[in-house]
Write a protein that binds this DNA or RNA. Sequence first.
RNA 1: GGCGCGUUCGUCUAGCGGCCAGGACGUGGCCCUCUCAAGGCCGAAACACGGGUUCGAUUCCCGUACGCGCUACCA
Length: 479
Amino acid sequence: MNSDIRVRFAPSPTGYLHVGGLRTALYNYLFARAQGGVFVLRIEDTDRTRLVEGAVENLLRTLSWAGLECDEGPAQGGPFGPYVQSERLELYAAHIQTLLADGKAYRCFCTTERLAELKKAQAAEKRPPMYDRRCRTIPVEEAERRAHEGEACTVRMKVPLLGEVVFTDEIRGEVRVSASVIDDQVLLKSDGYPTYHLANVVDDHLMRISHVIRGEEWLPSTPKHLLLYDFFGWTPPRFAHLPLLLNADRSKLSKRQGDVAVEDFRAKGYLRDALVNFVALLGWNTSDNREMFTLPELVAAFSLARVGKAGAVFDHDKLDWFNAQYLRALPADALAALCTPHLEAAGVDVGDRARTDAVLAAVLSHLTVPADVVEAARIFFEAMPLAEEGEAREALAAPGARVVLESFARLAGDVSPWTRDAVKECIKAVQKDAGVKGKELFMPIRAALTGRAHGPELPVIAELLGRDVCLERILAALR
RNA sequence: GGCGCGUUCGUCUAGCGGCCAGGACGUGGCCCUCUCAAGGCCGAAACACGGGUUCGAUUCCCGUACGCGCUACCA
């Protein structure tokens, strides 16, 4: 165990886990495990206007479902807790005092209204929207007096007017930003809560985070964070900014363009191994064409060096393919555990476990998610209306259909036991008897038995249905 | 508008100066086959553009274009 390596996943509790968040969490987890380091979960709930009831619990549950167990976090605690930012307010306040005392930050009394006007004016003049630093020159004594008298204020960082911030991103290499374009960012809001910028720096330092692995949307604010580390006299962690996950139109992956919540995929029946495997490959690969990985295999193979730079479109088709692959690799009992609830919900009696397993095996290649089993397996549990599919109706209306069915009904009586092989033989006998083969032979029987023109192999269907049901449906079709 | 990041098949990607530019999803065809699905085989499909550097650029450098992100008392 290399406890010097410490990473964190720091989501804000919005109510659900975004798949982009899942990937960020996954890479952090993989990096930590691969390095023998520590994976920390920290809740960033400093925006009290966006509190969502039960969000943290849901986040914990979803992360755990995905198999991403953390070493330190709100559930299990740890040596650097608490791990929820709203419980760390005194810490931020103390650090703000330090900054204020050192002249690295200043109180700002500008109202939201003035700020809005300023922004509007700047936009009208096509000037970059930055705080004009009006309060930066207020004498400290005056500022303190006004604050103590109860005047609402925020605290802003005093960004150097000159110079440049340069750092090396683990994924992108050297990034340089001129200090002149860095805003005097608010660090402490007027409600006493810190902004992300302050809280994340203070916490990452206090929690001894060695590598900050986060989404690329944070790249532009990293210089501010670096400045803060400098203000505090701290050694900053290393940064790795992950490429974004994209919608099909290449904009940042968002709701309104399909599911983005891990919970949604879970609810739809996507297997966690399939989702994790798929998401892991969005921005990372092993250069050897391999793409099937279990979580432990990902840990063994992962390295930050092989994370790409460009955004990756979330391709639902490929996710479906992964899920189908994982579904087919499942042992029979696991498959049954996943599928039978859907069958039961659809009113199917799954009491005969052996038969249910056989049905599942017969339709497995038609499934993308477990819920598909209901539609795929209906023919085994209920008589389908013969007119449902035009193709099936045509097969029954074909010239030789009647002869085939009558022959089948007659010969089926001699079949014993009623197994798929025996049925196969029986169909051969019908072929001879009725004098038709191929499509003309199979389709009428298939249509009569299932009401459909498509499905698993006919002998398999017949075996699963049992002789009585088969005869029943054949007779019904003849009427 | 400013700043930053990015750019190989439709999509995910391999490639780290010399390759017929490889794989996967999707897609087209064929095979298997009573049908569909699965599976197997085959195919179409990409280096954004322009300059350099070099004997030689997908690869290195610089521009341009395009895309995306950020630009809140949200994270």
